[in-house]
Design a protein around this nucleic acid. Structure first.
Length: 811
RNA sequence: GCGGGUAUGGCGGAACAGGCAGACGCAAAGGACUUAAAAUCCUUCGGUAGAAAUACCGUGCCGGUUCGACCCCGGCUACCCGCACCA
């Protein structure tokens, strides 16, 4: 009985937030105050968040953090008179939808439609100021027509190609993965084992843009950790490629960043997949042993290859040796899987004295270790030597520093025609095809006579056909491969019989250009009109997750540069500014997950406390950039604050538009204005709480409350609108002018000075603002306590910091 | 292993051009209102000692620079996030 009463009482809040929030949702829907108008005299502001994948699980509080943050910024910029574009859409192709469709025997399009409807309702519930007339859906043929169009442009210019190569194969998804999708050897999505498989795949030549993707980071306002991560991922290194002659009569080319250590190269290693093995077949004595090793390496998954990284394996080739070009000595060649086929030339010169991996291998196989850079002890560990190490045992390089030796030997190699300078990147081309149904069909036809032929633009969009079965086959073919009718087609080039490509694009395709579509979402003749792109792009501020740094963010920069090169977009970079939010953890401090049962559903919070409270709490819970645990109790604190604002606004107010609490209001305006731009939402809210507290203590004017509502409105828009209307301040608070502050009015005319004696705080004194050292010193010495402490002691030094502190050093 | 980051009360977090550590919120304790509870309002709230004034100690650990260090420098430790045999 009493429990029931408690429960009811608990929900007895100051105002009926459900009715208030529903009311304003309706009004915003009717009046469309957030509609962005292309072209205007105002400054444009394009704020972007990562559009969600509409999963069946619905919106997560993890979405609400970045979305609320950008909504607060967008609302503030709008009130500051900027022309704001703040759009939303759905990245709706993807595996979970397809899997759900398979399990429940529904068409993925139907699942997508349901999920989008659910997400839309939730996003509206949270009061985001999206322009709902610009919604984009990547699975809409009117949208993916342009995704396919971009692919054809890439194909035209040789940036999309088909190649057979070892790829990452997820055994559970039965699908190829990009390098970026393999996380510590397992599938990023399902956590299953990833193995290497030789497959013919569509590839995009992102490597052609590696240097520009790297260089252009410098001019961008991205948070540093995003830049660093992209730089590392692109992984530029400079060195040399050089040839070693072999006893088989041919040459073996290697890449090295340490050409200076050439005299120390005592053996060579080639990857198990290296093509030279075939050429040397007749010369090799231990071919069986080599074959066995190759097969064993091929069977290993990526995970296994890295797991056994501690213990090096390999087989020496008997029958073929290499000749070190500077020493003239014959050195052995090994195959080992510690050398990667996909980087450099797939072969290395091994310098065990100065490379840790080579050192380990040499120790295991009893190979000679030669010191060529002095300073270390190469018998006990490999020694890098830095740039300043001195060369030894290196003929004409002796006595030079490592840096100088690099230059000299490289020039020597060039002069002798043995090698050349070389820049390498870790970045690989982007594996672009997926053997799944629910993705954009690749608009390519395979003709026996003409090869791969682009579908004419007039045939776009190439629609996904209806299939009986969405499941992939164990042979790794897309479900589309079973569609005989759809599959066979005339070659657009020669008119002969041909077959369609049955792979589809990865999820990253549609998201690589979606922000362009927002500028002009209904355009049927172009991905967006040039006029709209000129006006709205680039994106001014893009907030999103760190997990997309080397995926979506890098991919879309690549596509954008390409579109710039072919004259489709006006800028070479898509996003001027990139920020990133921390994760919201469960109450137990762990990552939220269904299995841990610590997931917070935003619907429940909104139901109990309202959207304004949820928004406010999410912005208040901690440093935006850092992970922060959820606290169900702390949510109540935000609700209490909103209730106090309500009480204040409904209470006794002096009938003046001026500020009665001038200093407090000006300070808060300044603080909130600055903090929102710096994404310090938590301290902005703290200052609003302080202002409310002061105003509630008495003698607040209508002007004070008006300012408070304006400042609060980006965080709690529904309640702010309701009180704005109740107090008769005008139309909509979301379109009212953001308050200005006068810096002079934020300053006190007195300063409280910390008084230290010998560096230790003793007391404080109040002096006029800007008082000079003498005045402050006099005031300090006049203080009883200070007088007592300093009595009978000699003042040897005085340090003052204006308006802050005085430190008296006594003896 | 490499790269990036973090470490502050019981908890989330403030304050960093080197200048009053702990704003704001949560939790807790006490009080007011109430028949009672909830809600609300008021007060206290880093530690030790003390009735108090006050004193001493306190920003992961050890050292240094400085009148003064959460902040700068050197050396550790722990945790988080990337990358992971990239020659």
């Amino acid at each position: 009985m009493s429990a029931e009463i408690n429960n009811e009482a608990k929900n007895e809040f100051k105002y009926d937030f459900k009715a208030v929030e529903a009311k304003w949702r309706r009004i915003w829907e009717e009046k469309k105050p957030y509609a962005a108008k292309t072209a205007s005299d105002k400054t444009k502001f394009y704020g972007l968040i990562e559009f969600p994948y509409p999963s069946g699980a619905g919106l997560h509080v993890g979405h609400a953090r970045p979305y609320t943050a950008m909504d607060v910024i967008a609302r503030k910029r709008r009130m500051q008179g900027e022309n704001v574009l703040f759009p939303i859409g759905f990245d709706a192709f993807g595996l979970p939808t397809e899997n759900y469709a398979i399990a429940n025997k529904i068409h993925p399009a139907a699942v997508t439609e349901q999920n989008i409807a659910g997400f839309t309702a939730q996003l509206k519930m949270l009061g985001y100021s999206f322009d709902w007339d610009r919604v984009v859906d990547t699975t809409d043929p009117a949208y993916y027509k342009w995704t396919q169009w971009i692919f054809l442009k890439l194909f035209d210019r040789g940036l999309a190609y088909k190649a057979s190569m070892p790829v990452n194969w997820c055994v559970s998804c039965k699908c190829v993965l990009a390098n970026e999708e393999v996380v510590s050897g397992v599938c990023e999505r399902c956590g299953s084992e990833v193995v290497r498989r030789e497959k013919s795949q569509w590839m995009l030549k992102i490597t052609q843009y590696a240097q520009r993707l790297l260089d252009d980071l410098d001019g961008l306002d991205y948070i540093e950790r995003v830049k660093t991560q992209q730089r590392n991922w692109i992984g530029r290194s400079t060195g040399a490629e050089l040839d070693f002659e072999t006893t088989a009569g041919d040459k073996l080319r290697v890449y090295t960043t340490r050409p200076d250590t050439l005299f120390g190269a005592t053996y060579m290693v080639i990857s198990p997949e290296h093509s030279a093995l075939k050429a040397w077949e007749s010369a090799l004595v231990n071919l069986d042993e080599i074959r066995e090793y190759q097969q064993a390496a091929a069977k290993k998954s990526d995970f296994e290859r890295t797991e056994v990284s501690k213990d090096k394996t390999g087989v020496e080739l008997t029958g073929v040796r290499a000749i070190n070009p500077v020493t003239g000595g014959e050195i052995p060649i090994f195959i080992s899987d510690y050398v990667l086929a996909t980087y450099g030339t797939g072969a290395i010169m091994a310098v065990p004295g100065h490379d840790e991996r080579d050192w380990e291998f040499a120790k295991k196989f009893g190979l000679p270790i030669v010191e060529v850079v002095s300073g270390g002890d190469v018998e006990s560990a490999a020694y890098g030597g830095g740039d300043t190490g001195i060369m030894v045992n290196s003929g004409f390089l002796n006595g030079l520093s490592v840096a100088d030796a690099k230059l000299k030997i490289t020039q020597w190699l060039v002069d002798k025609g043995l090698g050349e300078r070389k820049v390498n990147f870790k970045l690989r081309d982007w594996v672009f095809s997926r053997q799944r149904y629910w993705g954009e069909p690749i608009p390519i036809v395979h003709c026996g006579k003409c090869g791969y032929v682009a579908l004419p633009e007039s045939e776009l969009p190439l629609l996904l056909p209806e299939v009986e079965n969405y499941e992939t086959t164990d042979t790794g073919e897309s479900p589309l491969a079973a569609m005989a009718d759809w599959l066979s087609v005339r070659c657009p080039h020669c008119g002969g019989a041909a077959k369609r490509e049955t792979d589809t694009m990865p999820q990253w395709a549609g998201s690589s250009w979606y922000f362009l579509r927002y500028a002009d979402p209904k355009n049927a003749d172009a991905l967006a009109s040039r006029e709209a792109l000129d006006y709205w792009t680039p994106v001014d501020w893009y907030n999103g997750g760190m997990e997309h740094t080397t995926l979506h963010l890098l991919y879309s920069r690549f596509w954008h540069k390409f579109l710039y090169d072919i004259g489709v977009v006006p800028t070479s970079e898509p996003y001027m500014k990139r920020t990133s939010h921390g994760m919201i953890l469960g109450e137990d401090g762990q990552k939220m997950s269904k299995s841990r049962g610590n997931v917070i559903n935003p619907n429940d919070v909104v139901d109990e406390y309202g959207a304004d409270t949820l928004r406010l709490y999410i912005m208040f819970l901690g440093d935006f950039e850092k992970a922060a645990p959820w606290s169900q109790k702390a949510v109540r604190g935000c609700k209490r604050f909103l209730d106090r604002v309500w009480t204040l606004a409904e209470g006794e107010l002096s009938d003046s538009d001026d500020y009665a609490h001038e200093k407090a209001v000006h300070r808060t305006v300044k603080k909130v204005t600055e903090d929102i731009e710096a994404m310090k939402f938590n301290t902005a809210i703290a200052s609003l709480m302080t202002l409310q507290s002061e105003l509630s203590d008495g003698a607040a004017s209508r002007g004070d409350v008006r300012a408070l509502l304006l400042l609060l409105s980006p965080f709690a828009p529904h309640m702010a609108e309701e009180l704005w209307e109740k107090l008769g301040f005008g139309e909509l608070v979301c379109l009212a002018a953001w308050p200005e502050y006068d810096n002079a009015k934020t300053i006190d005319d007195t300063a409280e000075i910390a008084v230290q004696v010998g560096g230790k705080l003793k007391t404080t004194v109040v002096v006029p603002l800007g008082a000079d050292e003498e005045t402050v010193k006099a005031a300090a010495l006049a203080d009883d306590k200070i007088a007592r402490i300093t009595e009978g002691r000699e003042l040897v030094r005085v340090i003052t910091v204006r308006n802050k502190l005085i430190n008296l050093i006594v003896k």
